[in-house]
Design a protein around this nucleic acid. Sequence first.
DNA 1: CTGGATGCAAATCCTTTGCACGAGG
DNA 2: CCTCGTGCAAAGGATTTGCATCCAG
Lengths: 168, 168
Amino acid sequence: MVRDYGFWFVVCTVLVFGMAVRESSIEDILSRIRHASKRVTVAKRTVAQVLAEATGHLSADAITVAVQEREPDVSPSTIYRILEEFEELGIIVHAHLGQGAAVFHLAGTVHGHLTCEICKQTFEIPSTHFDDLSHDLLESYGFELDRHHVALSGTCAQCRAPGSTPHG
Amino acid sequence: MVRDYGFWFVVCTVLVFGMAVRESSIEDILSRIRHASKRVTVAKRTVAQVLAEATGHLSADAITVAVQEREPDVSPSTIYRILEEFEELGIIVHAHLGQGAAVFHLAGTVHGHLTCEICKQTFEIPSTHFDDLSHDLLESYGFELDRHHVALSGTCAQCRAPGSTPHG
DNA sequence: CTGGATGCAAATCCTTTGCACGAGG
DNA sequence: CCTCGTGCAAAGGATTTGCATCCAG
């Protein structure tokens, strides 16, 4: 993967594409808020930044902590209200993993979740894995699978391996 | 499905097989408890009956209500403790559906769950639907899918249909 | 200015836990 | 009998809500 020109391709991709996407997605979020006749506030702006900078999925609590690092006066209830609004506007989606709190991420990142029941780690996988199942469920039951919201439980490779550390 | 001898086959299946299974599964549960050096109590017996008689999956609260109809003095915390014990003994499994409380059912009934995000109804489907996905996840990530615990969100046929009642 | 957005605290829902008592083997 | 199981009440985490205040448009 990372060799000769491939390395620079990756670097440029991260710098140009990654940064650009993040900047634009924040502006995109804010413009969606304005477009819905909602108000753009410091709290919403900060939540948008946290979500755009997050590599994976965040719980409401993790988002609150991250937001309060920058804006200490934003309260948890405000975070919940903002997340609710963002979800209604289609900016973010949430998923319920095996146990515990719900997790949130930008709606653009369509993927499924695998949660290990033993080590509690969560893995993101491309939603293409659910294409066949999605067709199957639609044909069999007329059920339209929400591939943004898929969260499956099971045992991860590390925890299945006999010798290795079970809590990798 | 239900026509001439097929009808009576269904009837007999429900009566003989169904009743017999239910009776025996209660005894089976109780013997598993004894075998694990745990005590058989009125509360456990009643929870076992409720679980065996349930057609679908029940929340802890629903189980509590059903148990208290017969044994009013059984407390919710006892129900939770019994459900925990039953799960450790492999008698039952639980699943977390889209939102809300966890649901429980006998471990013998291996199936997946489809939960409609609109009408909140839950549908049970055979776990065979997950065979291909299961193989795929195992090959791709070494992840062993827990097919007892699968709960998928989406939109059910009724709520997808334009004209019909959205909350069927 | 004016109503939507926020902070705070309290309420809610689901589940777990501490403790003293009661009942099962 | 001696321990495990139970009832009660209180704690716990995650999320929602009521209300007075505040700030974006």
